[in-house]
């Protein structure tokens, strides 16, 4: 097998092709070349076989549970009340609001529109969803990626999200009610893409996640409290939704009633 004279750099090129790291034009040109150059075709086959073999047979080392325990203990030891550096994008004073959230309560607003509530209960699936929603919420606030479309214009946010998802999420500006629209973002929840519609309540961020849920049926809003955050999830008309924030629970319930009523 004599290498093709025009193939001086193709180890790298063929590797990129095997890794799916070439654009469509180069992919087309390389594929065409492979049909006519037996040497490159054979090398490409070898790279693919090598990749497959490594993926299937290279032993993965899994962390011993004792290591997780040691890390947990080390974190706790490290965790003396040191001052947490402020972050410009993060709403201030999480701790101050914690008490309010826990003290807040009442199902009045939601009961008013005939919805029942589950508090701190529910299925394992619901718990996993809650953890996912909370993790996404934290990510959105701690990074610099709160929104993909930062605008209070719902006529911009809604089509942007609809074009990228198999769901047309409800987007409203509840500024008059104290929940101005901040923008929209593509996110991932429980293994599927979801729209994140971002609102504010004073300086608190509210993430409203909405996703396509054809088999979900109907479920009334269920409230879960986690680490000072409130998560309210419900299902309606082929759509799943979760609202999450560290605003007081009653405030988030009011927000959810607005969303539910607006449809």
């Amino acid at each position: 097998m004599t290498p093709h004279p025009a193939c001086a750099r193709s180890d790298l090129e063929l590797g990129r092709l095997a890794d799916g790291e070439v654009g469509v034009v180069r992919r087309f040109l390389l594929s065409r070349h492979l049909r006519h150059c037996a040497a490159c075709a054979a090398r490409y086959e070898e790279i693919l076989t090598m990749r497959r073999t490594l993926r299937e047979r290279l032993p993965a080392h899994r962390a011993p549970p004792a290591l997780a325990a040691r890390i947990g203990a080390a974190l706790a030891a490290e965790n003396r009340p040191a001052p947490v550096p402020s972050h410009p994008r993060r709403p201030a004073a999480f701790g101050a609001r914690l008490g309010g959230v826990l003290a807040g309560g009442g199902v009045g607003v939601l009961a008013g529109i005939g919805l029942t509530l589950l508090v701190m209960g529910g299925s394992a699936r619901g718990d996993r969803l809650t953890e996912d929603v909370l993790a996404s919420h934290l990510r959105s606030m701690m990074g610099d990626h709160l929104t993909d479309v930062p605008t209070s214009d719902r006529h911009t946010v809604k089509p942007w999200l609809s074009a990228r998802l198999d769901v047309s999420p409800p987007v409203h500006d509840f500024a008059a009610e104290g929940f101005p629209l901040v923008g929209g973002r593509l996110d991932y929840l429980d293994g599927h893409p979801a729209a994140a519609v971002v609102y504010r309540s004073d300086r608190h961020v509210i993430n409203l996640f909405v996703w396509h849920d054809p088999q979900g049926g109907e479920a009334p809003p269920a409230v879960r409290l986690r680490q000072g955050f409130t998560v309210i999830c419900w299902r309606k008309a082929g759509m799943g939704a979760c609202a999450v924030s560290d605003v007081e629970r009653a405030t988030l319930e009011r927000f959810v009633s607005l969303v539910a009523a607006a449809g």
């Binding site: 080392h61 997780a68 999480f94 993790a135 934290l138």
Partner: peptide, 27 residues
């Protein structure tokens, strides 16, 4: 945010990647 909240948040986000961290370190 209390120190405990910060730790829980960290664990929630970072601990799930312990296997990946260990595998790389082990190799």
């Amino acid at each position: 945010m209390t120190a405990t909240d910060r730790q829980r948040r960290f664990e929630l986000l970072v601990l799930p990647h312990l296997d990946a961290a260990y595998n790389l370190a082990r190799w």
